[in-house]
Every structure is written in structure tokens, then in C-alpha cells.
């Protein structure tokens, strides 16, 4: 009897189809994704039935932590062809910082803040900021990891934009200085969307007591920015 020959089949699997699928999926995710914003505190926004989406451009959003600390993040014009890119996020952030610091120095001549070009450059790359003017120099000269660590420490008194019940716009508090600087940054699209109420978004956690958020709302009212939006999540069925 002859030996039975076992045919050796090649174990190669054709991966081309699989690769096609993965590339498609990858393209989908790359095109639809907006990256998660790095924020000093994670807040769970309350839910509502409203279906108006948050704009991604020309927006000043105010983040209120449950401890009452206030952070700001600014987004400029997304279209680079508008105003030769002068209204884009980074130039506008530089402009706002320069304006705000100049205003602060005018009001507090004894405690002047001096920033270098490099500090301004660092600031323009920050998505969210929130330190008192006096800590700005120190904060902007830290390394990025140190900045993140510093700003996430909610028990530190030197974190968060100071805010109080000030109603006197001749002597604005730091939050009011920032908001005015944002309003008069020179980006007309940002200004008009702030006027319409789309350009200001307040974000706070579900459980934050009203007394804390009220500070922010009250300050906006004092600044005559009466129209603004409140960030919420989409309501689910069981709510």
C-alpha cells in the first residue's frame, strides 16, 4: 500500500477585505470626531429636551466647578479665510490676554502683571484657563504637566478666576475683566454671537448648589450679558 499523502494547505488568510473595513471605519471616526476637551474638572451637565447644539466656533464657555471655581475657555473663528485668520482661536486668545492684563494693570497699579511674549504664546495654546491674574506669570511658566496638575487642584485658593458680587463696573472683578476682554477682542463674529446669547455657555455640574452658579449668572447680568446659554445633555427616556 502506498502512503496517503496529506496535502499541506497554506494557512494564509487574505486580510485585504478586513483591512478595507478597518480603513473605512477609521476614516469615519477621523471625520466625525471632535476631541474631548481637557478640562480641570469633569462635570456632569443636567439634561434637557432642548435640541440646540453648542457651537464649536466663536464661543466663550464658563465652567463652574462644584466648589465654585470658575474657568474659561475661548474658541475663535473656525474659518481661516474670515478676516485673514486674525479671528482664529490663537490670535484672539493673545488679544484677549493682552487686553485683560492691561485692564488689570490699570486698575491695580501696585500689583502689575508683566508677561513676556513667550507667556502669551503659551496662553494661546491653553484650552481652559482659570487662575487669578497674580498667578498668571507663575502658571504660564510651568511645564504642561505641572499646569494640568496645578489647575486640577480644587482645594488650592490660587486656582479659579476670582469672582464676587461686585456690581460696580468701574472697578470690575477679575471675571468681569476677562468677560469684557473677550467681548471686545476685535472678533466681530464672537461679539455678535455673544450678543445673541449663543456665544456664552455656562457649564456646571448637576449637583452644584444654585448659590454657586448664581454668582456667575449675577455677574453676567451686571455685565449686561443677559442672554446666554446653559449647557445640558440630551434627556434620556427615563427622565
Amino acid at each position: 500500500m502506498g502512503k496517503v499523502k496529506i496535502k499541506r494547505k497554506s494557512t494564509l488568510i487574505d486580510m485585504t477585505a478586513m483591512s478595507d473595513v478597518t480603513v473605512l471605519l477609521l476614516t469615519f471616526f477621523m471625520l466625525t470626531s471632535t476631541f474631548l476637551q481637557k478640562e480641570p474638572v469633569t462635570v456632569m451637565t443636567p439634561s434637557s429636551v432642548s435640541e440646540i447644539k453648542v457651537p464649536t466656533a466663536n464661543l466663550a464657555s464658563i465652567l463652574v466647578s462644584p466648589e465654585g471655581k470658575v474657568f474659561l475657555s475661548i474658541a475663535g473663528e473656525a474659518d481661516p479665510t474670515v478676516a485673514d485668520g486674525e479671528w482664529a482661536t490663537e490670535p484672539i486668545r493673545k488679544e484677549i490676554l493682552t487686553k485683560a492684563v492691561a485692564e488689570y494693570n490699570r486698575i491695580h497699579p501696585s500689583k502689575k502683571v508683566n508677561l513676556t511674549e513667550k507667556d502669551v504664546e503659551v496662553f494661546s495654546k491653553l484650552t481652559t484657563f482659570g487662575v487669578p491674574f497674580q498667578n498668571l506669570e507663575k502658571f504660564l511658566r510651568m511645564s504642561q504637566t505641572d499646569q494640568d496638575k496645578f489647575i486640577s487642584d480644587m482645594n488650592n485658593a490660587g486656582v479659579g478666576i476670582p469672582i464676587d458680587d461686585n456690581k460696580d463696573l468701574e472697578k470690575p472683578n477679575e471675571f468681569q475683566i476677562w468677560m469684557r476682554a473677550i467681548y471686545s477682542s476685535g472678533n466681530e463674529n464672537l461679539q455678535s454671537s455673544m450678543k445673541k446669547g449663543e456665544g456664552i455657555a455656562v457649564k456646571a455640574d448637576k449637583g452644584t448648589p444654585y448659590s454657586i452658579v448664581h454668582h456667575v449668572l449675577d455677574n453676567l447680568q451686571t455685565l449686561k450679558m443677559n442672554r446666554f446659554s446653559l449647557m445640558t445633555a440630551l434627556k434620556t427616556e427615563q427622565d
Binding site: S33, V54, A233
Partner: peptide, 15 residues
């Protein structure tokens, strides 16, 4: 790394 659901907003006007 992505957020699929964009946040919603409620627009209000204070007096």
C-alpha cells in the same frame, strides 16, 4: 477619544 454626542444648550435671557 471622541465625543459623539455634542452638548445641548438651553438659551435663556435674564432681566
Amino acid at each position: 477619544c471622541t465625543t459623539m454626542i455634542k452638548s445641548q444648550t438651553l438659551q435663556i435671557t435674564l432681566p
